[in-house]
Design a protein around this nucleic acid. Sequence first.
DNA 1: GCCTATATGGCAGTCACTGTCATGAAGGAT
DNA 2: ATCCTTCATGACAGTGACTGCCATATAGGC
Lengths: 214, 214
Amino acid sequence: MTKDAPDAAPSRPNLRERQKWRTRADISQVALELFEERGVEHTTVDDIVDRAEVSPRTFFRHFATKEDAALLIHHDFDVALRRHLHRGDRNSPLSTLCGVYSRVLADYGRGEGEAAQQMLRVRALMLNSPALHTAGLRLDTRRAQELLEHFLAEGEWTAHRELQVRMAVETTAAAVRVTLKIWNDLYNSATPADAAELFDQALNSAGIVPGANG
Amino acid sequence: MTKDAPDAAPSRPNLRERQKWRTRADISQVALELFEERGVEHTTVDDIVDRAEVSPRTFFRHFATKEDAALLIHHDFDVALRRHLHRGDRNSPLSTLCGVYSRVLADYGRGEGEAAQQMLRVRALMLNSPALHTAGLRLDTRRAQELLEHFLAEGEWTAHRELQVRMAVETTAAAVRVTLKIWNDLYNSATPADAAELFDQALNSAGIVPGANG
DNA sequence: GCCTATATGGCAGTCACTGTCATGAAGGAT
DNA sequence: ATCCTTCATGACAGTGACTGCCATATAGGC
């Protein structure tokens, strides 16, 4: 495979496949550790591969950039998203996306689960590393592109329809970003909040109504 | 000065100051040309500085990254934005931002003006260069941070208020991105559209109502 | 005309990232 | 068990973005 971001989930885990994902997870964990210890910008790829005991070349076969190594958890997010996203949905893209994101975020709850903890670590790192934050935005862009194609696949194309779908994709993505930011802030305060509830608040506060303009 | 992005507008243009901005504009124009000729990824900084007749070191004193050189026009966008943004606005952040962006985008019209042409060139390049697209998102993030601080400066802080302001900033930024994308598409089609009108359509299609939850 | 601030150039260095080739182990057949 | 294909890994050399440091020249203010 190429050095594109981790792509297909391990559908029928081979031994080879399992080892591949294990290597990926190992590298990702080491990267996360080192980023937390000395900061993203003060960690070199050599530092990571030394502790993870792989060659630099192998690192870049699994991750396109240094920062991507810390974002492996976002891949799980995307997988969950695709699982909740079905073809032939009769609702509008906007209300579909609101529902899907809401369900995915519900799993994060107040941050107790394993995946939630991982996500919280990454969000915390993003606060001090513009590069990592930007890497996250790159993944958002990729996901937005995928969602756009999903919704534009059926029905005839018009500029107005594309504008509508793009807005649905972008505003909900923005809502997710804001949700995760506040969710992380509150987790580190005295009053942790539920991710899905924050997401609802985010949508409401911007006046975004899923039912509008279906 | 440091190699941060171009910051203050030439308020009282010194000779030094004028030369500085001239150098910047020259480098930016050359970068734009070369990016269009051979693509962003196939243009090196050496290529740019050779044609612009400056040293590589000087290049990086003016622009933090290769891609930033092509985004000088975005600085003008930010300046225009700040000009329309006044302190002590009694409206909600969301409706304020909608109004401000609307006024700024109105200047782009259907793409006739000088600034509009420049912006169209950059947007066209972004379609074929993920790196440049990402660099644009970095500037969006910086602007979002600035706007956030602007709106949070007055009034007491609560998590809910921050969520509200962040959503206003992010959703309007998303609307601007979508607007510029479609605007660029339509400019290269048979039926160019007015930027400000597209912006209104973008907001409406997502059900964003400036008056909500002020 | 003098002094300071600052924009520039040159140079060496670090580090992210890539192309290529060789190797060794897994997977699927006989 | 054996052969053969596939593919993950490692080693190595190379490119190119970006930085720190020092020297120089020019504009601005006195």
